[in-house]
């Protein structure tokens, strides 16, 4: 057993864990954080993505012991204390960027990390940023849309410092599908 100390969604937890315990199992089975789900066990699907020290990681590929002393943020900690949804959560809900929703916790956490690095991504950059997260239901169209919608909301909330690295690439915008509402009859 090793003694670890984690801050998860703002709450500090001190626990003894087996050295082989995976972070995702620690979160789910010891801390009751079942909002983070397991999809594949092999680091392919990304459903278990959380933020560790602000960076997205697949929590099935991190040992709980490796996370000692770290700050972990899961999908359960994103909403405001008043229950108000994070802009990425709101956008996934509004844009129908989920169906069964099993990929959603990981997809949202990956998107939060993506937008922290690149507040104004092109559609291609959104796709690249979420390449490690599988969704079997949606065909991803509305996920790209949701991330773009969230990015717009977040930019309006916090005027982000801009540098050359976050400028959108010319000509790669506007490649999403037409909105469902615009569907031709």
């Amino acid at each position: 057993m090793s003694r670890i100390s984690l801050k998860v969604d703002g709450v500090r937890y001190d626990d003894d864990v087996d050295p082989r315990t995976l972070l995702v199992h620690h979160l789910r089975e010891h801390l009751g954080k079942v909002g983070t789900v397991v999809g594949c066990d092999t680091t392919n699907c990304g459903a278990c993505t959380v933020l560790m020290g602000g960076k997205s990681v697949k929590s099935c590929t991190v040992l709980a012991a490796q996370a000692d002393g770290q700050e972990i943020e899961t999908v359960e900690g994103l909403a405001g204390k008043d229950g108000s949804l994070h802009p990425v959560q709101q956008a996934f809900h509004d844009s129908h960027a989920l169906q069964c929703g099993y990929c959603t916790p990981g997809m949202i956490m990956a998107a939060v990390d993506l937008l922290a690095e690149n507040p104004e991504p092109t559609d291609d950059e959104v796709r690249e940023g979420l390449e490690g997260n599988l969704c079997r239901c949606t065909g991803y169209q509305n996920i790209v849309r949701a991330v773009q919608d969230a990015a717009a909301v977040m930019r309006a909330e916090v005027p982000a410092p801009r540098d050359a690295g976050t400028e959108p690439m010319e000509g790669t915008r506007g490649t999403t599908s037409p909105a469902a509402e615009e569907v031709a009859r």
């Binding site: 899961t74 959560q89 809900h93 929703g101």
Partner: peptide, 20 residues
């Protein structure tokens, strides 16, 4: 196109899957 009633639970991680 109203929002799906389970959508809020699904984006907050509160939706209880059979594995949860």
């Amino acid at each position: 196109s109203p929002r799906r009633p389970d959508g809020t639970l699904k984006v907050t991680g509160e939706f209880a899957y059979s594995s949860d």
